[in-house]
Design a protein around this nucleic acid. Structure first.
Length: 297
DNA sequence: CGGTTACCCTGGATGC
DNA sequence: TGCATCCAGGGTAACC
């Protein structure tokens, strides 16, 4: 479920509650999610440790423990998320972090149990593993780097944007929204994109993700919530994702839901008029060709 | 190697 | 009403 904006919102919500606090004890309710350590080892090492930092790496949450106690890495995947303790207990609690100072706890919940909770003894080694398995963060990548990386693959642009090794943080919702805003068809081969296309995609990535973080992410059904149990507001202003049959906000054409090569298990939503399968702008838009987007064919 | 598919898991929605 | 089927924000092993 959570993509970059949701995970960033989780991390921002966790920091005030967790950073510089002592984790009195950790309780692994569901060992199924645990990786890299036994329940006993995990509970022993983390119990009594101090959380020094809480970071986001792509769609992963990293808790850095003090006194060289390593780090905890949590992947929410589809339905994972954190909640600060409240009188009402949420369902599907998988790991509990009991805090010492204010008598409080942080719950990690995950309905579908696809999430992962891992402990790494060597923080530096773990950071190197991140560097290998994740590309540059989608919020930080510069245009030249993005263009070079996309230029190296003939895969469809949407599949490429969702490849965490190419670019970290973008998932199904925001890939759809980015490509709509950039007016690029999701199946356009990444290596065929023009400099103008790439410029719009780069700008759309920053714009969409920044707005989504400001809205605290996207919620629907019983899915993602903030650490306070609140819904994110971005899906009130999304253009295409989960809007099949509804009018495109730009041209009124009904939004299409489909499945595309390389992503057959995930739905893709787009506007067939705004996101033409051909190169946009009615011709190749070179560095000198600054023609704006034409609205009609 | 690059690209694609099957599969992990659960609960809610949909269909017969 | 009851039961079967489909579906979902992600990632990775295994395959061609």
């Amino acid at each position: 479920m959570p993509e970059l904006p949701e995970v960033e919102t989780m991390v921002r919500g966790l920091r005030p509650a967790l950073v510089d606090q002592v984790i009195a004890s950790v309780e692994v309710v569901d060992p199924f999610l645990l990786q890299g350590a036994s329940v006993e080892e995990f509970e022993r090492v983390c119990g009594g440790s101090r959380a020094v930092k809480v970071l986001r790496r792509g769609k992963w949450v990293v808790m850095v423990l003090g006194d060289c106690r390593g780090l905890i890495v949590i992947q929410p995947r589809m339905t994972g998320g954190f909640r600060l303790e409240t009188p009402d207990r949420p369902e599907h609690i998988r790991v509990v972090f009991h805090l010492e100072q204010p008598e409080r706890a942080i719950w990690f919940c995950d309905m579908r149990r696809l999430g992962k909770v891992a402990w790494h003894a060597d923080a530096d080694k773990a950071e190197c593993a991140f560097a290998q398995s994740l590309g540059p963060d989608a919020l930080e990548i510069v245009l030249d780097d993005l263009s070079a990386r996309l230029g190296r693959t003939a895969r469809g642009i949407k599949a490429a944007l969702m490849d965490q090794k190419l670019l970290a943080g973008i998932g199904n919702i925001y890939a759809d929204e980015v490509l709509f805003r950039a007016k690029v068809h999701p199946e356009r081969p990444a290596s065929d994109l023009t400099p103008a296309d790439l410029g719009r995609i780069h700008e759309a990535i920053g714009g969409v993700l920044t707005e989504a973080i400001a809205a605290e992410g996207s919620s629907f059904d019983a899915g993602y919530r903030t650490v306070l149990g609140l819904e994110g507001g971005f899906l009130n202003r999304n253009a295409v994702h989960r809007r099949q049959g509804k009018p495109c906000p730009a041209c009124g054409e009904p939004i299409v839901k489909t499945r595309i090569a390389g992503l057959i298990t995930r739905p893709t939503y787009f506007c067939p008029r705004c996101q033409s399968a051909k190169a946009t702008g009615g011709g190749r838009a070179g560095p000198s060709g600054r023609r704006g987007r034409d609205r009609v064919s």
